[in-house]
């Protein structure tokens, strides 16, 4: 049974109505299953072929190590120039090459699924919904939102675009890194990994409201001092425990942060398996960041029989949460207030 508890018979689409995904899948996705299954089996045999030298080399390394440990452990001088050391290095190179070979072919196959099947799944939602495995997105213009950390390198994949009830949606899988330390210790450290979701609507927010994760008493106090905005104290103790809110407009912040929205935010975080969700309302946009080390929009296992059912179900479940967010906040309504 699938872990995604969603019905494929009534799936919400871009205009808010519901359609059956079953017939759609039969028409647009299932015809590709046989071809991909054939490719998958070919990939499986390639992997098996690579496993033969891998096993031999792995076994050889284990034997050499055993030999070195048992017979030469008391004679360091002899082992120094021992030909076994070079053999081990050679074996490691072979291991890396074989591993790279498997990785290359698996990634190529995954990418083919992403480029062929995923756009078809997203097209079901209608109204310009599209999927690309690469992205031209940049978070540099979003630094003022206070939820995008300072970074030097940015990498994005999986770009989803579309409109739900007239609200523009863009979702990207982002990896932001920053240089830490200096000299020899200088290295790139991940400062954010996860999803960046932007909603652009016709409704405009007067102020800027930032919802960040709670950093404890001292952390919150410091953050409050560093933030351009005032802290918003909320009545919901559950939400207060998880989040810290700052806003330039106290009334608007309370208007946006209703109990329904707070619950929706937590549910969205659960659906995407995020350990930290943050968001910012600014101008005509709502920006959400979902931090997680999980890789989103990836095909499920390529080592078991393909039917794309779990891929479809997970995408439908995730998109449904995003649509719920728009409905809860009534982002589609603009009544001139």
């Amino acid at each position: 049974m699938s872990k995604y508890n969603v019905s494929l018979e009534t799936v919400r689409v871009a205009d808010g109505s519901t359609r059956s995904f079953i017939e759609y899948k039969q028409t647009y996705i299932d015809p590709h299953v046989n071809e991909f299954e054939k490719n998958r089996l070919a990939l499986k045999s390639k992997v098996k072929m690579a496993f033969v030298p891998l096993t031999i080399v792995g076994g050889a390394i284990a034997l050499i190590f055993l030999y070195l440990l048992i017979f030469l452990e008391n004679n360091a001088a002899e082992t120094k120039d021992d030909p076994y050391v070079f053999t081990i290095i050679g074996c490691v190179i072979i291991l890396i090459a074989a591993g790279g070979y498997i990785q290359y072919h698996t990634n190529k196959f995954r990418l083919k699924i992403k480029d062929t099947i995923f756009p078809r799944i997203f097209a079901f939602f209608g109204d310009g919904f599209s999927y690309k495995s690469t992205s031209n997105f940049s978070a540099r213009t979003l630094r003022h939102t206070e939820i995008i950390p300072d970074f030097d390198r940015e990498k994005y994949e999986d770009d989803i675009n579309g409109h739900y009830k007239g609200v523009d949606i863009e979702i990207v899988d982002a990896h932001l890194r920053k240089w830490k330390n200096s000299g020899k210790k200088r290295k790139l450290k991940t400062v954010f990994k996860g999803l960046i979701i932007t909603f652009q609507m016709h409704k405009s927010f007067k102020g800027q409201t930032v919802i960040t994760k709670d950093s404890g008493g001292l952390g919150n106090w410091l953050r409050g001092k560093l933030s351009k905005y005032d802290t918003v104290r909320l009545e919901d103790p559950k939400f207060e425990k998880i989040f810290e809110v700052f806003s330039s407009d106290q009334v608007e912040a309370r208007y946006l942060l209703t109990t329904a929205f707070m619950e929706r935010l937590l549910k969205l975080s659960d659906t995407f398996g995020s350990n930290s969700i943050q968001c910012c309302f600014h101008g005509q946009n709502l920006l959400i960041t979902l931090s997680t080390y999980k890789n989103f929009f990836e095909p499920k296992s390529v080592y078991s029989k393909l039917d794309f059912n779990d891929d479809c179900r997970s995408i439908i479940a995730e998109m449904s949460q995003i649509f719920d967010m728009i409905d809860t906040l009534k982002l589609n309504q603009n009544i001139g207030l």
Partner: peptide, 15 residues
């Protein structure tokens, strides 16, 4: 529009 205004009033009341 009225409902939206009422929601804003509720928010300002909370503040």
């Amino acid at each position: 529009t009225y409902n939206e205004v009422e929601e804003h009033i509720a928010a300002s009341r909370r503040f």
